[in-house]
Amino acid sequence: MTADTIAAPRSPRAAVRRKGPNLEKAGWLYMRISGLALIILIFGHLFVNLMVGDGIHGIDFAFVAGKFASPFWQWWDVLMLWLALIHGANGMRTIVNDYVTHAKIRRVLVWALWLSAGFLIVLGTLVVFTFDPCLGLTEDSVAWLQEVCA
């Protein structure tokens, strides 16, 4: 036997590159970009809800109804919802890929993650865009909300 016929003990393994999009790279980039966007969206959300007006004491049904009457705040909250759920599901997918060794179990868990994130995205989006402040009227809020419901 010669040194040419025996592989070196620490020879690098050749990386196999599949054709098509690099989904791991896309997921990695998404985590960084969505994380930055979420910082802006979340701190904007917290600033408006906690610092403007009466702060935490001013948050009630009428406050939420007033915010959701504006398309700007509807889209702000939906964007925050979508980015946060996809960001979280992608992070969980990474953890599942790192720690679950059985391929079928890993596939089932990743599918369950994406299905649950998709369900919550659809449900949350429906709540934001179909929110009707007139359905939750009480005697105390009728006067304030009459303008919104008219």
Rank of each mutant, 00 (worst) to 15 (best):
A26R: 14
R32N: 02
C134F: 01
C134T: 04
G55H: 10
P12W: 00
G27E: 05
L137I: 07
L36E: 01
R17P: 02
Y99V: 03
A14F: 14
F119M: 12
L23A: 15
L41W: 07
V100K: 01
D132T: 02
V127L: 07
Q146H: 07
L41N: 01
L36S: 05
V64I: 14
I6R: 14
V96D: 05
R107M: 08
W75P: 01
L50Q: 13
W76L: 05
K25V: 14
A84R: 03
W73Q: 07
F47C: 02
K19C: 11
A143M: 02
G124Y: 00
V108C: 08
T2G: 15
G53R: 04
T138H: 01
E139F: 10
V64Q: 07
E147R: 15
V127Q: 09
L145A: 05
L123D: 10
L145I: 00
V108E: 09
S116A: 12
F119I: 12
V48L: 08
R93W: 06
M31R: 14
W114A: 13
G91C: 06
S70K: 07
W73Y: 12
P71Y: 00
R10K: 14
A37E: 06
W73K: 04
F131V: 06
K67W: 05
Q74M: 05
V127R: 03
G58I: 05
V148F: 11
G66Q: 06
F61H: 11
R18Q: 11
G88E: 11
L109W: 08
D140P: 08
V142F: 13
R32L: 12
H57W: 11
I39T: 15
V64F: 15
C149G: 07
A143C: 03
V122M: 04
Y30N: 13
I59W: 06
L46P: 04
A112D: 05
R10P: 10
F119R: 03
E24N: 13
H45Q: 14
P133K: 04
S70T: 03
P12S: 10
R18K: 14
Y30K: 13
S70M: 01
V148Y: 09
A65P: 10
F68W: 10
D54F: 11
L85A: 06
N90S: 12
M92T: 11
G124D: 05
F131P: 00
H87D: 05
M92P: 01
D140K: 13
I86A: 14
F129T: 08
K19W: 12
G88N: 12
K104C: 02
H102D: 15
C149W: 07
Y30S: 08
R107W: 09
L123A: 11
G44M: 12
A103D: 10
L38F: 01
I105A: 13
N90P: 02
A84K: 02
P71S: 04
I42G: 12
H87E: 05
T130H: 08
L137K: 02
W28I: 10
W75C: 03
L85P: 00
L145Y: 09
G66H: 04
L137C: 01
F131Y: 13
R107Y: 04
G35A: 04
H45N: 13
V100C: 02
A143G: 01
C149Q: 07
E24C: 09
L123Y: 08
K67S: 04
R32M: 06
L46W: 11
L135Y: 03
R107H: 10
M80P: 00
I40V: 15
R107E: 11
L81C: 06
V148D: 08
E139T: 12
F131T: 07
I42S: 15
T5Q: 11
